[in-house]
Simulated scan of single mutants.
Amino acid sequence: MSSTTVTAPAPRAALVTGGSRGIGAATALRLAEAGADVAITYVQDEEGARAVVAKIEGTGRRGVALRCDAAQADTAAGAVHGAADAFGRLDVLVNNAGIGVLGPIAALSDAEVERVLAVNVRAVFLACRAAADRLADGGRIISVGTALSRYTGGPGSTLYTMSKSALAGLTRPLARELGPRGITVNLIQPGPVDTDLNPAGGPFAEGQRAATALGRFGTADEVASLVAYLASADAAFITGTEVVVDGGHAA
């Protein structure tokens, strides 16, 4: 009787931008736990990036940290190509990196406007453009927006909300464009999430907490679990949509 050698499928590979802390770090670990090799990008937090890579490798998967300042036009695509080259493939792109500059519109400087739009809009577009070339058929693109782009935020959030609202305009047509290859494109809209940038015990927390039906902040793990689901085979029929994870902000 002849024997047949069965070759195991290659592990899936993912890139999570802004993965050295917060939602990005939690997402990277969730994807690794689901069996993916994961690359993350960081700007200055090299120590945090190394810690995340160590956790990824602790699951038995490969981890890579790529330094990438998303405000620079040539780095977003470079990170996509770097992750794909490191793992020999790319199946999941999570556009998580983002910055928020708050303040009255008249007080925002030209430099602040340019940096927010460069990181929150241009870098996401350029990463998606590169991913369209490198993603395997059946791949996933998941972007992280904000519930503020669906429901009115407080004064001072105009620039941040505008930049994140652009992601909805990217998601739907890109889902149509890449759909024939089985690639899904989705946008998640988190509400208040307890992170270093927006701590649940911070000076602006109480109003955010009161605006939710659950009366609390979400956790990075709760958001990461949604990203991991959208990246999974179980979510293959979900594309071109916005999924809100905001504790009932609009309830």
Rank of each mutant, 00 (worst) to 15 (best):
P9D: 13
V53F: 02
N198F: 11
F217V: 03
D37S: 15
G179E: 11
L117Y: 13
D85Q: 12
R122Y: 05
C68A: 14
L167M: 14
P11F: 02
A36T: 00
F125E: 12
G22D: 15
T59P: 02
G22Y: 10
G100C: 12
L31Q: 05
G22P: 11
V6H: 15
G63K: 02
L214K: 07
P203F: 10
A86S: 10
V185I: 05
Y42F: 15
A168S: 06
T219F: 05
A231P: 02
P190D: 07
I183G: 01
A211G: 12
S157T: 14
V116Q: 06
G207A: 10
A83W: 01
D133M: 05
A236Y: 01
R216A: 11
C128D: 14
L90I: 11
G207L: 11
S149N: 00
A28H: 06
V243K: 13
N95Q: 15
P203K: 04
R115T: 13
P155K: 12
R67A: 12
G35S: 07
L170R: 03
V113M: 10
E177H: 08
A147N: 07
T212V: 13
S163G: 13
P192V: 13
C128P: 02
N95D: 13
F87I: 07
A123E: 09
D74L: 13
P104T: 05
H249V: 13
A233N: 11
T75I: 06
G248P: 07
D221V: 11
Q72S: 10
G63C: 09
V227T: 15
E33H: 00
L126E: 02
A168W: 10
P11K: 04
G139F: 02
L230Y: 07
G138M: 08
P180Q: 15
I188E: 14
A71F: 09
L66C: 08
T195K: 04
G78V: 03
A228M: 07
R21K: 15
N95H: 01
I105G: 08
I183A: 08
G60M: 08
G60W: 00
C68Y: 02
T4R: 04
G202S: 06
K164G: 09
A233M: 03
A106K: 00
V53R: 12
A235Y: 08
A13C: 11
A123S: 14
S2N: 15
A127I: 11
G248I: 04
A28V: 09
E57A: 03
V124H: 08
V116G: 00
T5R: 09
A132L: 05
E242G: 05
T41G: 07
R140P: 11
A210S: 08
A26F: 02
L102N: 11
V92K: 00
A131E: 05
A49N: 07
Y160L: 09
K55V: 04
P190L: 01
D37P: 05
V43L: 11
A131G: 13
G48V: 03
R67H: 13
S2T: 09
V101W: 10
Q44M: 08
V80F: 01
E222C: 12
A118S: 15
P104G: 11
G240H: 00
